[in-house]
């Protein structure tokens, strides 16, 4: 199922690419595609602060850059603090008449490790302080850049190099940390989930997040063929199945109000999603059943929050 505006795509989106081709992402990288979509909406009047990780590495091999807009990378865990500094600098300098107010937007990019683990504290701080910025978490569910180590965003049952499946283990034995809900708990004006398999939905959300005054958080599921042990040509399909099975529901929370972007009264079985990914290949029906039950339970809660009967 493609979204309704599927035909004649370029007429609906700008053909401008603010994230230049020639980047060194793996073949079939869902994250590179997500960055491309996000950057199309961000346009030129933006400053991007990037965490260490896949995106930074595949886009900035010195002395070249894939970025067409001002971009800064410093460390792994401090994106939200750096973007706080950039935003505050503009605020102060505009107020003091040192520069003109040209409506520049401030955006932070981080992977799931940089967001859910090592950079959670600075993110929480920046959201709490209410800086006017958009944070995009590109979630590929493990530390892919360093070689597929587990993060707190890795799903239950997945194989990773530091939570491998073995005789005594199913792989990841903890449930995926719910970052969007942590963002919601900060009472920020805008939180959303997105996936590049649904490009127009993703781009709409980036636009809304960017226009919102105050912190906005978008959590983007980014299929990783390398780490998920999937075929590169199935990146879009896997993302779509993540949504259709309820594993990764797409929704928005605008000023505390939940809205499901796509609702599935009957979810596809999670097995449909997992069968294309060898990271789940070792799982028994018993474990898959446990995951199925959890997904349904969580999806039901989400539907309730969104007021869907």
């Amino acid at each position: 199922m493609m979204e309704k505006y599927s035909l004649f795509v370029p007429r609906l989106v700008t053909t401008e690419e603010n994230f230049a081709p020639g980047h060194r992402a793996c073949i079939g990288c869902g994250e590179a595609l997500a960055v491309r979509h996000v950057c199309k909406v961000l346009g030129k009047n933006v400053i991007i602060v990037n965490a260490t990780g896949c995106i930074e590495i595949f886009s900035s091999l010195f002395p070249q850059t894939s970025w067409q807009v001002p971009w800064i990378h410093t460390l792994f865990e401090n994106v939200s603090a750096v973007v706080s500094g950039v935003e505050s600098a503009y605020k102060a300098r505009i107020r003091k008449g040192k520069i003109k107010d040209r409506g520049v937007k401030f955006v932070g990019f981080g992977g799931d490790g940089a967001t859910a683990d090592i950079g959670l504290q600075p993110l929480s701080g920046a959201m709490e302080r209410g800086h006017d910025f958009l944070y995009c978490c590109f979630d590929n569910e493990a530390y892919m850049n360093t070689g597929i180590q587990r993060s707190s965003s890795t799903p239950y049952g997945a194989w990773t190099t530091t939570a491998p499946a073995g005789k005594q283990s199913i792989g990841q034995i903890t449930w995926k940390k719910n970052l969007p809900e942590i963002a919601v708990a900060h009472k920020i004006p805008y939180v959303a989930t997105a996936c590049p398999s649904y490009p127009f939905d993703l781009m709409d959300k980036v636009k809304r997040g960017m226009e919102m005054e105050g912190p906005a958080y978008i959590h983007i599921l980014s299929v990783c063929p390398t780490g998920w042990r999937s075929s590169p040509n199935q990146t879009i399909e896997i993302g779509r199945l993540a949504v259709e099975t309820g594993v990764f529901p797409l929704y928005e929370v605008i000023n505390g109000e939940y809205r499901l972007s796509f609702d599935f009264p009957k979810l596809k079985p999670v097995k449909e999603y997992m069968k294309y990914q060898r990271r789940f290949g070792h799982l028994t029906d018993d474990v898959i059943g446990r995951i199925q039950a959890r997904v349904e339970e969580e999806y039901l809660k989400l539907r309730e929050k969104a007021g869907v009967k």
Partner: peptide
């Protein structure tokens, strides 16, 4: 007349200084 960022750690204090300085501010 300055922005005072009451950060949540010293790590973030210096990170915000880096961001602000990179954006041209006196920090």
């Amino acid at each position: 007349d300055a922005e005072f960022i009451c950060v949540e750690s010293e790590h973030s204090a210096m990170s915000a200084c880096v961001g602000a300085s990179a954006a041209g501010a006196r920090v």
